[in-house]
Amino acid sequence: MIARLECVRMLRSRRPALAVASLVFFLALMLLGFYTYAQTQTGGEVDFRYTYENRSYFNGLTFALYAFYFGFQLVLPIFVAAEGGVHLAGETSAGTMRLLLARPLSRARLFSTKLSLALAYSTALTGGFLALALGVGLVAVGWGDVDLYPGVLQMSERHEHLDQALALQRFLWIWPVASLAMTAPLCLSFLLSAYLRSPVNAVACSVALYLVLFVVSEIHFFEELRPWLFTSSMSYWRELLREEIDWKAVHQSAASLAGWSILFSGLALARFRHREEP
C-alpha cells in the first residue's frame, strides 16, 4: 500500500512534468544550436541535414548522441538529485514524514520504497530522454550510420563506425547502462536528504556536490583523485559505442557505480533508521 501511495503522490506531483518539459526545452535548444551552426558556419551552403561536413558524419543518431551526452552530464543529474532531495528532506520538512511513520511501517520499508520509486523515476527519465532525442533526431535530421572520431566530445579515441541497426541496438543498451550511472547521484542526494531536513538545502547541496565532483573528474590535473570519484565512471556508457566493446571496462565501471550507489544508500539508511524526528 505504501508503494501505491508513493506512486500516486509522485504522479500527482509536478516534478515529472517539469523534468520532461525541461528536457524537451533542452533538446529544442540543441536542435537550434546545430541548425544555426550549419547556417552561420557555412554561410548556408550546406543543408542542415548534412551540417558542415557530410551525412556520414552527422545525422539523427549523432544528434541524439550529442544531445544525450550533454543532457546526461548536466541536465538529468539535476532532476535526479532533486528527486532524491525531495523524498526524505521534503517529506520531513512538510511534516508528512510523521504522518507516514505514525503507521505500522518500518523505516527500512519506507526508505526502500522511496528509493525504488526514485530509481524507477530516474530510469524512466533517462530512457524517455534518450527516446525523445532519437525521435527528434529522426524527424528533424533523419537517421543513418554512426561515425565517431577522436577528439570531438571525447566519445572515442579512434574512428568507430556503427551501422544504423547496430547503433540503434547500442542505444537500447545505453538506457540501462546510463540509468545505472544515474543511480549514484540519486543515492547521494538520498544521503544528503537523510541528514538535511530542508529540501532546498538537500537539493542544492546534492546538485552542487555533483557539479563539483563532475568538474574535478573532468580535469586532468586530478588524475590521482579521479578514480575515487563516482562521476569519473558515469560516462562509461560511451564504451557501448565502440565497434568492439571492452566489456571488462564496462563491468568494472558498473561495479564501481553500483558500489557508490549502495554505499550512499547504506549510509542514508543508517542515518534514516536511527535518526529522531523532532
Binding site: 500516486v8 503522490r9 506531483s13 508528512t96 510523521r98
Partner: peptide, 19 residues
Amino acid sequence: ALFEGLTAREHLRYLGNIS
C-alpha cells in the same frame, strides 16, 4: 500535515491500509 495531491478519501484509504 497532509499530502496535498491526494483527496480526503485517498488519505484514509492509503494510510489506513498500511500494515
